[in-house]
Design a protein around this nucleic acid. Sequence first.
DNA 1: GTCTATAATCAGATAGAC
DNA 2: GTCTATCTGATTATAGAC
Lengths: 191, 191
Amino acid sequence: MLQAREDAIIRSVNLLLAEKGFEAMTVDEVAANVGIAKASLYKHFPSKEDLAAAAMAHLMEQALAFLGSLPEEQAPLEKLRAVVRWMMRLKLGGEMPSLPSQNSTLRTTLVAHKAYMDGLMGVSDRLGAWIEEAQAQGLINPKLPAIAVLYTLYARACDPVMEFLKMGGLNTDEEIIELVLSTCFDGLNAR
Amino acid sequence: MLQAREDAIIRSVNLLLAEKGFEAMTVDEVAANVGIAKASLYKHFPSKEDLAAAAMAHLMEQALAFLGSLPEEQAPLEKLRAVVRWMMRLKLGGEMPSLPSQNSTLRTTLVAHKAYMDGLMGVSDRLGAWIEEAQAQGLINPKLPAIAVLYTLYARACDPVMEFLKMGGLNTDEEIIELVLSTCFDGLNAR
DNA sequence: GTCTATAATCAGATAGAC
DNA sequence: GTCTATCTGATTATAGAC
């Protein structure tokens, strides 16, 4: 019962972070959306920052579950493309929480949050291994540092190009995904 | 004299927007950095949103000046690459203001700001023309909608990959620029 | 136009009863 | 654990003297 309530809180935080970002999200809103009093919320999570950290930790859990669901025999490059597709679908569906990379008190809470950090490390390790495999196979540009490739993939989670294309209203979500996937892996230049 | 003061204000806003973003920037800070009282600031600009809009309008002026400085004979693709380099240098130098794309009152002020909107349209028109030329020459992937290419170039102004690489401390600014330029135009895949 | 002082509001967090 | 009511501090914006 308590777990169910905390899940509802995290779901709500997740949606609000995706919709309006950390600074614009208010604790009052979260409480209202969940249907409890703000003071009750603070019995579950000690601060607004911890709410965000919990949502990010949950996202990492989901990500690890998705990575685990990919068929073992799939080629590393295809796994990477699948992960980016998954991220972009979350984003277009309004379920990709976005945090300001500058806020220092938030960063402090995040790096202190064990579940989040463990999840992030787990995801990064697995993606990093696939990146290096794909580079060894000559499919991903071996001249790029693997860490730069990893960051570039992560950055699709907050790519404004998708929002702009969606606002334009000329493309379906899946078209947008394939478009951004193409610019990401194939680049803007003709091949 | 009045113009000089307003320039100082805009410069300060620009740096603060680049450093901490719109929501975390406070009007008190701006006033303190400029060295005037907050009430004086409000004699020059009617709201915090207008401060941001003025900074963005100034950015568009700078951009137009840069576009105009490019040699006429340069190939369109090279001009586009030069523009992206210019944007990334600004960003790494802490002079690229970043605004939240979600804040609605801010968007209202922005679209009502004639100098900003005219500047943005001017920049977009010129970049759009170069993009279509480069596509006609078969240098930029003709299958990509020109608007998607434009957005992808603009997105380099708020690409977190650069901040992360800079935080890593393993690369010089110019190395980071060439790396991101490579992933942007050539993609992650090997060629 | 610049200042000091202050209004007005909002949001994160807490007190204390049940 | 949940609630109502409140505190506290920060922040946008303005009043009014010079």
